[in-house]
Design a binder for these strands. Structure first.
Lengths: 221, 221
DNA sequence: CCTACCGATCGGTAGG
DNA sequence: CCTACCGATCGGTAGG
């Protein structure tokens, strides 16, 4: 992203509107992670930011768009804080573990004050209809699909039992991550993520191939 | 509960107020399971029931109490639809499986149109403060504690590996139930609960004692 | 249970 | 980005 810097010495470097827009979305993500996207109102956001209601409104033109942009911004945070570090590991079992650890770390670090944003909106919009529901559904399919891919790859590399159903196993890894997020938030205890870590470990342990080959050396007869 | 029936031939048998109160809570549970307790307003409920706003208000005296009573009513439904049938099985491993199956059946049957009410409010209030947060936290501790008890009993009966950490294992069983509920609701696909069923089966399988004794007959040397 | 009302807040518009 | 405003809805009260 090139920076069209101006020389006129104003206190702001980037486009004022762009920066304000991003600041509004930042506050919106924080608020919505705690109270939900349904509680996100233009007026509250304006009060929180010390500007007028229509000052916020002008950036989005409708509450619907504010909610959609907030969700999209949160998905970008998820991408940056979970997927990018998780995908740094070599593909297969290592990447699967790395994705799980990246998720738990993201919960522990309190990236969102109300816990994982995707988990928040999953529960909020699962039973509703409309564009937010659809966006949540497609986001979760992507996330589950990513895990599934790595299960398949790990099977190809003989790191996981070839008899596993990839979608089923991805579900079994995801489940403790999700519940650890909710319980850590509910009890204000970030160490509850260790339950998730242990669950992932145990789930993977029982899914290793019968004859494990972790190096290139063939097993003894 | 004795029935103080009246003979004056009115179309209603029980106390009118009692019955109306229960009908309001019924509608409130349906609505809140879909949109959350935070979206539950007296006015909407009144419109839905075809009565005046203050007609609903009179039954609760504050929105706070309406929300609290709705949560309590939903916990009673959970008790009736999950705990009671689950606890019918003999204690130990059988009861643990029975509780898991009762939960999944309750999701499949669509007892609440928006999926499991407890899962809904867990995500909604995990990051908030106040009496609703506290009620949710205590409800989940009870539910997890119930599972934990049965893990301990199953260990005593040599039905589960004595090395298991009961709280950890209860968490591992609960996690796929919770996620199955959200995904079944999100994708409007009640068969997704089968993923939960398979996860529970696999989790229990790897937690059986090394020398399994399912009858009173001692294992061979 | 009702009507009628209170002040506050909602999403959104007009006009600048 | 602002003030000023719209009709609708909010929780809650008064009086019956």
């Amino acid at each position: 992203m090139t920076n069209g810097e101006r020389d006129d010495g104003g206190p702001r470097r980037r486009s004022d509107g762009e920066q304000t827009h991003a600041q509004i979305l930042d506050a919106a993500m924080r608020l919505a992670s705690i109270e939900g996207l349904g509680s996100l109102t233009i007026g509250r956001l304006a009060r929180e930011l010390g500007v007028s209601k229509s000052g916020v409104f002008a950036h989005f033109r409708s509450r619907q768009r504010l909610q959609e942009e907030t969700l999209r911004a949160a998905e970008e945070v998820f991408q940056r804080e979970v997927l990018r570090p998780g995908l740094d590991a070599p593909e297969g079992l290592a990447r699967l573990k790395s994705l799980c650890n990246a998720y738990l770390s993201y919960v522990e670090r309190g990236v969102f004050p109300g816990g994982c944003f995707l988990a928040q909106v999953l529960a909020e919009f699962d039973a509703q209809t409309g564009p937010l529901h659809d966006a949540v559904a497609s986001g979760h399919k992507t996330w589950l699909g990513l895990m599934e891919e790595q299960v398949i790859t790990a099977q190809r590399l003989n790191e996981l039992d070839p008899a596993l159903h990839p979608q089923q196993f991805a579900f079994e890894l995801w489940a403790p991550l999700e519940l650890a997020n909710y319980l850590a938030t509910l009890h204000r205890d970030p160490t509850i993520t260790d339950w998730g870590r242990e669950a992932v470990r145990a789930t993977i342990t029982r899914a290793l191939p019968r004859t494990q080959v972790s190096t290139g050396v063939p097993p003894l007869a």
